[in-house]
Write a protein that binds this DNA or RNA. Structure first.
Length: 444
RNA sequence: GCCCCCAUGGUGUAACGGUUAGCACGCGAGCCUUUCACGCUCGAGGCAGGAGUUCGAUUCUCCUUGGGGGUACCA
């Protein structure tokens, strides 16, 4: 088996594209001896810049979807395309015509919509493939079953421009054929391209690959997923602090479900269980909330050491182990760590509302008492801090939060943070007391 | 306009034609609790509509409605 992922390099790897890549990859990795081929499919030189191509590769690498061959660019194959073109011309399977899109429209207006455009060989102009008048072109789609297009509804497709440069529908077919691709898995926006490509195979007397057309991904409004739905590319997801393994897990489930309806599935299990034939036919909506939940689950299941490594790579900071350890179950994406625990390293954040609510004149008494108790502690461990502050609560008949919240705001600057005892212990006695003193000295 | 496709709660999905239609996210309530989370318990919410086939349709067929894709000398 040889499967390929052939994105058009428009700059970013769309989530739908990422899912297509993942499904291809899962098929290849789940089949012994299979090869996963990467090819850049774009006949437009403007768009196919090295930067754009590199962005796609970068996103795939980040998702940890490795490939066995490629990437091959279509432009490297111009000679081969020209060769196939002249063969088709010589065989009478294609012809040159100056007919334009307007001519096609006029032709249909004249002959009715149930008659596809058929041109005459004029010896110049663009090259069109001859479509038979009768019959149909059909294939057995791995996902949607038998799919057929009547030839009478098909116009003779242009396969090369007048200048000789090839068009997508011709190029993919030739490239897939030469690469020995056995399975083509792509979005259903390619369905109507399939008969054209099949006709190229047919004209060449070649055996076509199997096709599987995935339903498209929609945004929360039911429309095609795009920029205005927030994160729509894997680059954006990465920047938002999602983990590649969580993304793989989540997007695998967008249109496909494991036999036992499992929600949390490791990549190894995915490889073992994934079955392209079980993919849903209807479009799925991308739901970032569920991704976030799943991401949090993956974050919580990591060892503190692993998670620290991820957080440090994401934030570009080091020495975060203690902060990560005490806040592991409180953040769901890597990006959420710093707003939550950054105060441990860069000083208290500034939340005026929190200060106003918890550091008023009447709360300072509790804070002052806490300061004395903390200063008197032999060991500044979370355990000892816990013990002495709870003792303060009991003795002073204060509510727990009247003791803990002012302290939290004093050291963190915000009303939300990891546990106070743990946070104090991470900060250490000196830093903690200093922050408390500043809070006590602040204006009411 | 024409061609093609799709249809289980808000979302993703499960269910040999026979189930009180299951699971997960989200949502609501409660428990836990120093904040926020996590965790646990409970709850609300669905087979788009109509015919037909059948002893029996979420499941098969047709129609309607709704949604999507394509319709380039783009990919």
């Amino acid at each position: 088996m040889r499967v390929r992922f052939a994105p058009s390099p428009t700059g970013a790897l769309h989530i739908g594209g990422a899912r297509t890549a993942l499904y291809n990859w899962l098929m290849a990795r789940g089949t012994p001896g299979a090869t996963f081929v990467l090819r850049i499919e774009d006949t437009d030189r403007e768009r196919s810049t090295p930067e754009n191509v590199e962005q796609i590769l970068d996103a795939l690498r980040w998702l940890e979807l490795d490939w066995d061959e490629g990437p091959v660019s279509q432009f490297e194959r111009a000679d081969r395309h020209a060769e196939v073109l002249s063969k088709l011309l010589a065989d009478g399977r294609a012809y040159r015509t100056t007919a334009t899109a307007d001519d096609v429209k006029a032709y249909k207006a004249e002959h009715g919509s149930d008659r596809g455009f058929r041109g005459q060989d004029e010896g110049e102009g663009a090259i069109r493939l001859r479509v038979p008048d009768e019959g149909e072109t059909a294939w057995d789609d791995l996902i949607r079953g038998r799919t057929a297009f009547q030839h009478v509804h098909l116009d003779d497709p242009v396969i090369a421009r007048a200048d000789g440069s090839v068009l997508y529908n011709f190029a993919v077919a030739v490239d897939d054929l030469d690469a020995g691709i056995t399975d083509v898995v792509r979005g259903e926006d390619h369905i109507s391209n399939t008969p054209k490509q099949l006709l190229v195979y047919e004209a060449l007397g070649a055996e076509p690959p199997r096709f599987a057309h995935l339903p498209l991904l929609h945004g929360p409004d039911g429309k095609k997923l795009s920029k205005r739905h927030g994160a729509a590319s894997v680059q954006e997801l990465r920047d938002a602090g999602y983990l590649p393994e969580a993304i793989r897990n989540y997007i695998a489930l967008l249109g496909w479900g494991a036999a036992d309806d499992q929600t949390v599935i490791s990549t190894d299990e995915l490889i073992a269980q994934f079955d392209i034939a079980k993919v849903q036919k209807n479009p799925a909506q991308f739901d970032e909330k569920k991704l976030r939940w799943l991401n949090g689950l993956y974050i919580r299941s990591m060892t503190p050491a692993e998670l620290t490594e991820r957080v440090e790579a994401f934030t570009g900071r080091s020495g975060l182990a203690e902060g990560v350890t005490i806040s592991q179950e409180k953040f769901a994406t890597l990006a959420e760590f710093w707003p939550l625990a950054g105060f441990l390293y860069d000083g208290p954040t500034d939340d005026p509302a929190a200060r106003e609510k918890w550091l008023g004149a009447d709360q300072r008494a509790n804070l002052a008492t806490s300061r004395e108790r903390l200063a008197a502690l032999d060991s500044f461990s979370a355990e000892h801090i816990d013990a002495t502050l709870r003792e303060q609560v009991e003795r002073g008949d204060a509510k727990p939060k009247d003791v803990f919240q002012p302290l939290r705001v004093a050291i963190a600057g915000a009303a939300v943070s990891p546990g106070v005892f743990e946070s104090l212990a991470v900060l250490g006695r000196e830093e903690s007391l200093q922050r408390i003193d500043i809070a006590l000295a602040g204006s009411p």
